[in-house]
Amino acid sequence: MSARLQTWLWIAQRGSAMVLAVCVSVHLVTMVIAVRGGLSAAEILARTQGQLAWLIFYSVFVVTVTVHAVVGLRAVLGETLGWRGWLRDLCLGAFALLLIIVGARAVLGVFGAGQ
């Protein structure tokens, strides 16, 4: 992997951290308010389903989590286990795919697609 691409990954890591700071706050505050308000899971879903804003919000959330987690894990694997090179990056690519798929399923559930 070229140093240029590594730099882009690093920038993506920083950028995703900034987006995540907002996303996690919104997510947590919303959850706390909803749960304290006594809403059940079904009631929460009834409010999110069909809402384009939540679809966009959680799609952004999933994408930034994927970027942040995978790039971070790449550094952790390199520095802690000494695992570097193309095989690590390939495995991380697969892991990113998994996160996107699992995340997309959750987002679609919140949006209510496929029901």
């Binding site: 992997m1 070229s2 140093a3 240029r4 590594q6 730099t7 690093w10 550094a75 390199g78 570097r84």
Partner: peptide, 9 residues
């Protein structure tokens, strides 16, 4: 100084 071995590390 860019890349995995550079300042970003």
């Amino acid at each position: 100084v860019s890349g995995d071995a550079g300042c970003q590390a």
